[in-house]
Nucleic acid binder design. Sequence first.
DNA 1: TCCATATTCAACTTTATGGTTGAATATCTG
DNA 2: CAGATATTCAACCATAAAGTTGAATATGGA
Lengths: 124, 124
Amino acid sequence: MVEYLSSSLDPVFHALGDATRRAMLRQLAQSPRSVTELAAPHDMSLAAASKHIKVLESAGLISREVQGRTHTCRLNAAPLASAQEWLSYYEKFWTSRLDALEALLKAEDAAKAKPKSKPQPKSK
Amino acid sequence: MVEYLSSSLDPVFHALGDATRRAMLRQLAQSPRSVTELAAPHDMSLAAASKHIKVLESAGLISREVQGRTHTCRLNAAPLASAQEWLSYYEKFWTSRLDALEALLKAEDAAKAKPKSKPQPKSK
DNA sequence: TCCATATTCAACTTTATGGTTGAATATCTG
DNA sequence: CAGATATTCAACCATAAAGTTGAATATGGA
């Protein structure tokens, strides 16, 4: 039903790859904020914060309503749903398994074409 | 129980912000692969693919076992769990709600200090 | 040993990122 | 209108990213 282009995930994950921007999303999860409010907790110029906001905006993660001189930003979580959808594919790799062990089990499971009796010791 | 540093999400989300790397993770979800095998479907030099693999590796998303001249890469999904955990915070913003509408509702919900009777028409 | 295979390394190019500062623009307010 | 506030813009800088090519390294196999 909900179909997401893989390519549209690029800007979303990219936007999430920065702690400042993730923090801004958390702020917006509380309530809409102006640019100044969003910038306040972060130790950087307003112009820098403005750029981060633009990154979030162009990833579709926030929308902006201009009211006079202030821009009110709101969270738009929809693209996060598509990110989570992408990640959900991998749930089977950690659900109800220890992850390192899981990797081993999964490898043997899936690699039907590659029967390897045991891991070789490192040559170095 | 599982506690993840926000900072460790930076390299994870960054790694996911590239379609080539996401595709490589999908490949590895099928079975472990050598560098050559991982590179094959992607239209780039082996050296470029090798760099992508290194990005995934340093984000902790894959591990590598060197056996002779081939390096076998395996998926390590654990950091994806922490990414999903981060995203899960936002589930409430899309679960059982239309997303645009949801933003509105949520805004009213969370902004207890800001009772706005109805959305203002855009000033522009 | 010789050659092919697997992978990385080094150097380089181009473009993107994240930050700065100072000026510009627009709006609100007395 | 004048000044303060909100935000962006433009220019600039330093570093990182993503790709290339060609050489280096290591291993496997005849």
